[in-house]
Amino acid sequence: AKQGEKAFERVEKINAELFTMTYGALVTQLLKDNKDNCDAVNKALDAIGYKMGMKIVDEFLATTAMGSCRTFAETAEVIAKVGFKMFLGVSATANVAESLQAYSLVLEENPLNAFVELPDKYRSELWFSNVLCGVVRGALEMVMFRVECTFVKCMLRGDDATEIRVTLLEILNENFASGDDD
């Protein structure tokens, strides 16, 4: 947790309201573009997040100067306490499943949700903060863990917390891409 604080201090910050408003505008625009098809919007947010995650991971590793996580379960704590703190300013709680192949990240407070009220027609289908799933998925893939990442609870739907479920699919191998093998 201390490392999270430190990392948070080290990164550049932007105004929280500006951030949430921008994100809100993005989601609204996506809803318009996709003619209120929540499924498509969820996917689009995930895809945006995925690309962010692939980049964010280097910034994260460079700022925190952390070594590699040896096990998948170890990543849970690091994402919850350091990653979320560094990029969102809040830390999450990680509950690792007994199998060690999955965990959930619980956020008591989600800055993306601030000022947001979901209209009834979106309530059961839209995962407003789905971008976070993409980020986690992208970032973990860069450190060789291919995961599935989905929302299970969202405060905007009336749940008591925000919960993201991360499930390990496979541990990737480094593959050598040789251009010209004779």
């Binding site: 692939m54 980049k55 280097d58 910034e59 460079a62 700022t63 100067a65 860069m142």
Partner: peptide, 21 residues
């Protein structure tokens, strides 16, 4: 080398929107 990674690479490559990983 670490500095090149954490300061220069992150600043000029990772944060470059035109650059794909």
């Amino acid at each position: 080398l670490r500095y090149i990674y954490s300061a220069l690479f992150v600043e000029h490559v990772v944060r470059d929107p035109m650059h794909t990983a």
